[in-house]
Design a protein around this nucleic acid. Structure first.
Lengths: 361, 361
DNA sequence: CTGTTAGCGCATTCAA
DNA sequence: TTGAATGCGCTAACAG
């Protein structure tokens, strides 16, 4: 730890602590001569100002909080990296927290972070309405929402065009001749999923189809597999009931067990896509021969799956960057206008096939 | 921000600030009556102690630093999650930094973190020897190394049995009859890769084979693809030259262009595995028919590749947990013994085939 | 059982 | 062009 304090530097350089402070922060004029002396002293003593003390004096910590549901979700991994890079570029630090979509954990983290006097917060809220988030906002700390909206919080939202992206995906399936199109979606407490459902519905409606509620499978984002399944080293997600019920896997079984099975499924995030592929494998269903899959959110390995997955890609890293950049501007007291949704990109690969005849109903 | 200070609580409860502090920290006896009064005051005033002020007074920030090369690498993602969970369980926070294996960035982050007076540090060092890491260690802040060793730093290392795992992998290939076995490895500045190379060599030597240097392909961990290749939304890794040269892709070309091509390749981490699969695809080489692949480090999607990849799995999440747990004990002043490497697990899938005849030499 | 008070290391106002 | 002195909010002697 920096055992040498500003006082030591001052004595060594034969100036007051005020002067040392001012040369460090360039906050008032100091003659070349004394400045050099101070700088030299800092150098030889290896002086390193204490961020803590500075924080107490200035009421600014140069630290921001980042709250996501799970860093292990590749979407948030990339977002986090984007935030990190941008934040660090400004000489700030990021404190990371995972909520696992649990509102209580979110509350706890919000409490802890505000005690830490973070200078700003980037959050993918676990639910649409949070009292604590509101009160943090009211206390004046800048907030940027990422990926998901929160009601009542006067903060910019950085997200993609979820409705439009979903619309694109489903439209693609329609154009390939599909008529019974299922959707596998996450919790409707999350605005993102609602938007994607909306896009799905709009595409179907525009095509003159009616919405069949049995084709809408809901799941949480977690546990895409009945466990003990021998796959990699992810956190023990199966630990809480909250995370268990109902898994992607189960939700999908329902869809596949339907008397008239959908010929295509729109899967609304990348974790559920994994679950879907596992489920198809277990049921020995071939994609795209038996069923077509299109997914929201791309990843590095999507082109390497069997088959390569057709997706709607979101600019994940850029999402994080944008949010961080916005937050920095808010922290610096600038006015920012609320950004419009970032565009998504359609990536056609091989997981959707053309169907000729409308399946018998 | 917490506008209400300890003084306000004290006045409201008609006690001294000392008493308030003591009921909060349970650091000396307080009568039930006054304690209740204080607690009530805290409640009604929504008092939230300032972590900053506390930090200045106690010289402890309840914050640790975590330095990895890239959170986007699924290995470090899982490790980070493990660290996070364990650290938060103790009421501490984690500050995250990505070095991209760049020693200068590492130095910079170390500097910033020590100015922040973190209570401890978990680091996957970018290189074996770091002066700054040494000096941080000497200044008395607890350090735990993760995944990789660093010379001269008196800190526990939490890693897996890299040598043994590599040995296992190569032994498997040998048992399947392979004799020309290539290795695709990362930078030798990282101890982990050296250990894996050692395991590779030991297996070959024990089998009575001589080490063929042309079968050893070295690469950095980055950029597993010539860019503009239309895959997901990872950070712009191609931005620095450091990260570009020589990519997995190129290193692999060399191996595949060999006059007598290896019949199997041991790929020493998951990022390079992606690169390998892309390269095979581009060369229209079938795995395992044309070439067998075995990889160090598992991931959720490995079973879904075509073919499912045989791997040596490491307990990534557990690795992070263990490191964090160790660090907490160091922070609390406990003596800890240096842990032995965690065991790896062999996961046979379908990317390695038996070869009958020894290929003509 | 509880209160007074002196720092923690820095930034900053007021003076000079 | 620079110093002296005060305070940021809390903890922890020391005192009672």
């Amino acid at each position: 730890m920096s055992r040498v304090r500003i006082k030591d530097v001052a004595e060594y350089a034969n100036v007051s602590t005020a002067t040392v402070s001012h040369v460090i922060n360039q906050t008032r004029f100091v003659s070349d001569e004394t400045r050099d002396r101070v700088l030299a002293a800092i150098e030889t003593l290896h002086y390193q100002p204490s961020a803590i003390a500075r924080g107490l004096a200035t009421n600014a910590t140069r630290t921001i909080g980042l709250i996501v549901s799970d860093i292990t979700n590749p979407f948030f991994t990339a977002v986090t990296r984007g935030v990190e890079d941008e934040i660090n570029r400004h000489g700030f630090h990021t404190i990371l927290s995972n909520t696992d979509e649990d509102p209580e954990r979110e509350d706890e983290y919000l409490r802890l972070l505000s005690a830490r006097q973070i200078d700003g917060l980037i959050i993918a809220p676990a639910r649409a309405h949070s009292e604590r988030l509101l009160s943090i906002s009211e206390s004046g700390i800048p907030i940027v929402l990422i990926d998901r909206a929160a009601t009542g919080v006067p903060a910019p939202l950085v997200s993609v065009d979820n409705e439009g992206g979903a619309y694109l995906a489903v439209k693609h399936l329609l154009e390939l001749g599909h008529r019974r199109i299922g959707i596998l979606m996450g919790m409707e407490t999350i605005s993102t999923h609602v938007m994607r459902l909306n896009g799905y519905k709009r595409a179907l409606t525009e095509a003159g189809l009616t919405i069949d509620e049995t084709l809408i499978a809901r799941t949480d984002n977690w546990l895409y597999l009945p466990h003990a399944n021998g796959i990699a080293s992810t956190p023990p997600k199966a630990l809480t009931n909250f995370q268990m019920t109902p898994s992607t896997f189960n939700a999908l079984q329902h869809l596949l067990d339907l008397p008239s099975r959908p010929t295509a499924i729109f899967v609304t995030n990348n974790q559920m896509t994994l679950g879907t592929l596992f489920a198809l494998k277990e049921r020995k269903l071939r994609c795209p021969d038996d069923i077509s899959i299109i997914s929201f959110d791309d990843h590095d390995w999507a082109p390497l799956f069997d088959p390569p997955i057709t997706v709607v890609r979101q600019p994940t890293y850029h999402l994080g960057q944008t949010a961080a950049n916005l937050l920095m501007r808010l922290i610096h007291g600038e006015e920012v206008e609320y950004p419009s949704p970032l565009p998504v990109e359609f990536m056609e690969r091989e997981s959707c096939r053309r169907v000729e005849a409308i399946p018998s109903l």
